[in-house]
């Protein structure tokens, strides 16, 4: 039982937090700008490298240097939106999807040019696990990730239901045409979407980098489970995406638990595939997602 909690449940929740942070942004962008942002994983990577550089310069702990990475990622997405996505906004959204594909490539090649393609780590050496009640032994990072996602969930809920910008974002996601007729400033809302999406992606990137190591494909490798999470939660439903991320993370970790025999249920090298499998099952049976999101 303790083994289950220590090696599967807590890591699953931590992984889920990373997916959730990315999926919130994907879901918001899909809801408001109406396209699947294929460069979102690479925004995470940018956030991780920005933070890494701040750590190198300042010697701070990565989570303290995180604001630098956030600013870096947000500036990058705002610039990309202005230069590459906005000119295509009047066209069918599929052109923006293609553009985001290209942006993913641009981000990754820039990262490799500036930082090289070798693996980097935030903190060297083995981290001591946190021991609770003599039974639960988990990594501090996983607890931090779970704490962050709880904080983000509360803040996001407050933002979306109580603030003018949050409500406007939900309104645009619900009915963009009417939002325009009602006089809402669409460009301002788009900007807010990128700022929130970029920030959360940077946090996710740093957490993912802390969990393993930092390399140029860090975020790209996570894009599929994040898409799956966004679909699971119902497109255009940020809180749903958060939940979806947690579910996908848990399923992924729990899929390699020896449920039936002494062997892992699913070979750990196929962990990522379980997320995809869930996405496929969902697309077949309930494409609107668990929380009845928008169906395009």
């Amino acid at each position: 039982m303790m083994e289950f909690i220590n090696f599967y449940l807590i890591p699953g929740l931590a992984l889920g937090s990373i997916y959730a942070l990315g999926a919130i942004g994907i879901s918001m962008i899909f809801g408001i700008l109406r396209f699947a942002h294929f460069a979102h994983g690479d925004v995470m990577t940018l956030g991780a490298y920005g933070t890494l550089t701040a750590v190198w310069v300042s010697g701070l702990h990565p989570l303290l240097a995180l604001p630098v990475g956030i600013v870096f990622a947000v500036l990058a997405v705002l610039a990309v939106d202005k230069v590459f996505y906005k000119p295509l906004r009047e066209l069918p959204t599929i052109y923006t999807v293609i553009a985001s594909f290209g942006v993913a490539l641009i981000f990754r090649s820039l990262i490799q040019l500036v930082w090289g393609s070798q693996n980097e780590v935030f903190i060297r050496g083995v981290q001591k696990p946190v021991v609770l009640f003599d039974l639960i032994r988990v990594s501090l990072l996983h607890l931090e990730a779970i704490a962050i996602i709880i904080g983000v969930a509360i803040a996001l809920h407050y933002f979306l239901s109580r603030t003018q910008t949050g409500r406007s974002m939900r309104a645009v996601s619900d009915n963009a045409e009417l939002a325009r007729v009602a006089g809402l400033d669409t460009e301002k809302i788009v900007r807010a979407t990128w700022i929130i999406g970029g920030s959360l992606a940077a946090i996710a990137g740093v957490l993912a980098g802390l969990d393993t190591n930092i390399q140029p494909n860090l975020g790209w490798n996570l894009i599929l489970p994040m898409f799956a999470a966004a679909i699971l939660g119902g497109i255009g439903k940020p809180m749903g995406a958060l939940l979806g991320g947690m579910v996908i993370g848990l399923v992924e970790e729990l899929s390699s638990y020896p449920w039936l025999t002494d062997e892992p249920l699913i070979n750990p090298s196929y962990k990522t595939a379980t997320a995809f499998l869930m996405m496929v099952i969902l697309l077949i049976f309930r494409p609107q997602g668990l929380l009845k999101g928008r169906l395009f």
């Binding site: 409500r167 309104a171 619900d174 009915n175 009602a182 400033d185």
Partner: peptide, 17 residues
């Protein structure tokens, strides 16, 4: 209307611009 917003939120949207 904005279907997923509450009635009060729908009314509120009218005040933003």
């Amino acid at each position: 209307i904005f279907p997923s917003l509450t009635v009060r939120e729908n009314l509120d949207i009218g005040t933003y611009a």
